[in-house]
Design a binder for these strands. Structure first.
Lengths: 336, 336
DNA sequence: ATAAGGAATCGAACCGTTTCGATTCCGAAT
DNA sequence: ATTCGGAATCGAAACGGTTCGATTCCTTAT
């Protein structure tokens, strides 16, 4: 692999001239410029990015850290990020959950191989992020709440209005006439599902139904977990007429259990959260709360861009959800 | 951000000693070792990866280049890659399709920021890859055929047996009694779909049915494309009893059109290819040919690992598909 | 007491760029 | 003829680590 030195020698100019040809061609006379460019072509010289990074102290690269790479859920998010990143001349590189402490996302952060990061993987704690973040390595965190005074001047939060989404869900249930719902929430450490549940309760509270009367059971955000939770609920033999699941995946499990017991959504309605693409396809199609992932990607990347330009203490953004009504929540026939 | 120099000064040792503490602790006496480690901790020193990369001429990083980040299809592949990569102490970073020539995957390749690559994005041509590949930057390409003599000593191919999969599909149709199939294939430039179609034809040929009697129509691998293709087929008003789609996505579109026209799979059976997770969920559940993506990831990463150890001209690998029979291909009732 | 050998530590070169300040060169202005 | 100014080019110092060979310092054998 030829270096800039080889090119310089071959073209009979100094190293700095070659560099100039590469970065600020207008500063070099036409004669030498074309000569150098020819040598570059014939030697197939490509400047070493690592060396450049070291010298200019940045990489033109940002990290996107996901929990796992699955689902069109993320692909939309990344689509949004990429759209903005391209216009900022930045290359996003994405990493899945880092199992190994020494590899993956944490390594990129620790070793400063990136100029910024967008973090969704909730396996990376806020205190870790606070430690890694710096003026030249700002971080945007998705879907988390920061302890009240911004932990670090270089961390920005973009979140979905989970509480509002939960409220929309509750409101919709009430509108359809479901007054005896049960809730399948996520793991306790998942802030998002807490908020969803809170909003859901609020809607019912406004309608005069106290949360104390609503059964809550914890799931683990997986399909199987949702199924188990639903089975547990059925065993209790309560008079419920609807189930709100804190994410779509679990709602899928709920639908399966219901189908197995020959219970129709007219008897027990089901609602999810997220609007994963599967939601549209299952039978009956799942009513759910849509998360604006593409918009989240765009917003996150824009804010990261600003932070990379030096802006500090960027205030958090909250994006609104929207209701997607499908067939799993049919209006309840008049009689209660 | 402190550098190794700061640590050295603070700890009263030379730079080389600090480096030694970091990389080969056993070579440093216990006393200085703990002292240096303490300074590292208090200064919160983290070695700069870029500087290290430059010196040792590698990054411990490999690129995974996808066409788009969507779909659990890829998440399995990446799962396989990550599993092996971790054991090799390598960090995989994934990039979507690079729109901009100056950004994304191409930049990582060109600027040698990675030590190896696994390429699925068929937007990157083989000749490009041949140009980028080198002893210290081997590449594994998925699902492509190389022009006969290996184009480069540092490119390895891992592919799915598309032809075999197509054959399995054809065989299954025949077994179920469908003797008048139509085929919805992919874009002409997609080698894979050609091979699938070829295998499919072979099965029928063995059963005495010539490919000349089988209608073929081109789709674009999307759901809408599949729907359009199916609509076209229906308009022709032919006496077909089954449709083989070169991928699941298009098959989904086919199912929708069929449903809209109130045609049941008992009249026109449908089969896809890929086994995306949706296939299990649609109504009726889609019979399809499963691609071993996880295994593909594992294989690709293993071979890349070998190539990175210096092995050259690694022969291509082909992985077998398997049939997943669901409800979209019910056995045809005796009468033809 | 001295030589030999091993452990601990160090100095300096090096990786491949960018960039700042200096130098050369040339034509125009005085 | 001399000075001046700008354009073109260059030399050398970074950037922040790793690593090789040299040096220092002990301990042990002679």
């Amino acid at each position: 692999m030829p270096t800039i030195r080889d090119v310089a020698r071959e073209a009979g100019v100094s190293i700095s001239t070659v560099s100039l040809v590469l970065r600020q061609p207008h500063r070099v006379s036409e004669g030498t410029r074309v000569r150098v460019q020819e040598v570059i072509k014939t030697l197939n010289f490509r400047p070493n990015g690592t060396a450049r990074d070291l010298r200019v102290r940045k990489s033109g690269t940002i990290g996107v850290f996901l929990r796992n790479l699955s689902g069109p859920y993320y692909s939309e998010l990344i689509g949004g990020i990429e759209q903005v990143a391209t216009s900022l001349r930045l290359t996003p590189i994405v990493c899945g959950r880092s199992v190994d402490e020494e590899q993956g996302s944490r390594r990129l952060l620790r070793e400063r191989r990136i100029d910024g990061a967008i973090v969704l993987d909730f396996g990376i704690t806020l205190s870790e992020l606070a430690e890694y973040s710096a003026p030249d390595l700002p971080i945007v965190v998705l879907n988390r709440t920061l302890p009240c005074p911004l932990a670090s001047a270089h961390i920005t939060v973009v979140k979905i209005d989970d509480d509002g989404g939960g409220y929309q869900a509750g409101k919709h249930f009430i509108d359809q006439g479901f007054l005896h719902p049960a809730v399948i929430t996520g793991p306790v450490e998942a802030e998002a599902s807490q908020a969803r549940q809170r909003g859901f309760f609020r809607a019912y509270a406004e309608h005069g139904i106290a949360s104390t009367g609503i059964l809550v059971i914890h799931g683990d955000f997986t399909e199987e977990g949702g199924a188990e939770a639903m089975a547990t609920i059925l065993n209790l033999n309560l008079a419920i007429d609807a189930v709100f699941s804190a994410n779509d995946q679990m709602a899928l499990g709920v639908l399966q259990v219901l189908a197995k017991h020959n219970i129709r959504v007219e008897q027990i309605a089901v609602m999810g959260f997220d609007d994963i693409s599967l939601a549209r396809y299952v039978q009956p199609a799942l009513t759910t709360v849509h998360q604006p992932m593409f918009e989240a990607g765009v917003t996150a990347m824009k804010l990261l861009g600003q932070a990379m330009m030096g802006e500090e203490r960027i205030p958090p953004r909250t994006l609104s959800t929207s209701l997607v009504i499908r067939s799993s929540t049919p209006k309840k026939s008049s009689s209660e």
